[in-house]
Write a protein that binds this DNA or RNA. Structure first.
Length: 266
DNA sequence: ACTCGTGTTAGCTG
DNA sequence: TCAGCTAACACGAG
């Protein structure tokens, strides 16, 4: 579910947990916390505090301090396909929650938790269990954030190779933050075929794509997520392009379900 | 009962 | 060596 816009919201949720003493850590989900063993993360964080919340693409990480205020290990969080964060603040307000749902998260989906000394908490929920929590995450392979890259670097990184353009956009080492829905939305906005070889795009097409990405991102951040894209509601059978009325079709591109307009994105 | 999947990655192939 | 592709991951949703 989460792409860059949702993860940015999650980062803001995380900020609510900063500078609050950690009294206990539940790191017992061995799959979510792998390769750490239960107790590893707890031992590293208990008594300390998160002090900064960062994001690049879909990856989150927190700087921490130990009990004495000395620098602690970095805590990495990736929400995977279906994770979400909840932080309970001292004033009783709760931030975060499963996107587009109001019901209380089921405790059986709780995969990681920090108890805070002031009585609050940070919790990670994930139905699919594909979220990841780890100490000292390796961020070296991550490309520049899709929201911060400039047009020249975008063209240089994306406009190369024989892979389908969509696969290039989804490659987090090329560009960090674009997921399946945002990729389809961006390609549709740019009127470009998802399966065109990335390296064969003209400079003009790459510029169009760059501007489509930035505007799609801005719209998604403004509206709280990628589900609000103009084309997204048409990702279903018997759909027609909301712009030209031509038939939408779908298939697999870059290993992911892909929708495109048969008229404008041939 | 059975298939699909909004993200990542190990492992295979040409 | 490496770009590119596929299957696997866990498990809920349809």
């Amino acid at each position: 579910m989460p792409e860059l816009p949702e993860v940015e919201l999650a980062r803001q949720v995380l900020e609510g947990a900063l500078e609050r003493k950690i009294s206990a850590v539940d790191d017992t989900d061995e799959y979510v916390c792998r390769p750490h063993l239960p107790g590893d993360i707890a031992g590293a964080l208990t008594g300390g505090a998160l002090v900064a919340a960062h994001r690049r693409g879909k990856s989150l990480w927190c700087a921490t301090v130990g009990p004495g205020g000395d620098p602690g290990p970095t805590l990495g969080i990736h929400l995977g396909m279906a994770g979400w964060l909840v932080v309970d603040s001292p004033d009783g307000e709760r931030a975060g929650g499963e996107p587009f749902r109001d019901d209380q998260p089921d405790v059986k989906f709780r995969r990681f938790a920090l108890d805070l000394a002031d009585g609050g908490y940070l919790r990670l929920f994930d139905k699919r269990r594909l979220a990841r929590v780890r100490l000292e995450p390796d961020l070296d392979e991550l490309g520049p954030d899709a929201g911060e890259i400039g047009p020249a670097e975008f063209a240089e990184r994306v406009g190369r190779g024989k892979a389908p353009l969509k696969a290039r956009l989804l490659d987090q080492s090329v560009l960090a933050g674009v997921g399946n829905l945002l990729a389809d939305e961006t390609l549709w906005q740019a009127r470009l075929s998802p399966s065109a070889p990335a390296g064969e795009l003209s400079p003009k097409e790459l510029d169009t794509l760059y501007r489509a990405l930035e505007s799609s991102l801005a719209a998604a951040i403004k509206h709280g997520g990628v589900h609000t894209g103009e084309m997204i509601p048409f990702r279903k059978a018997e759909a027609y392009c909301p712009r030209c009325g031509g038939p939408m079709t779908h298939g697999t591109v870059g290993g992911r379900t892909t929708w495109w307009c048969t008229v404008e994105q041939p």
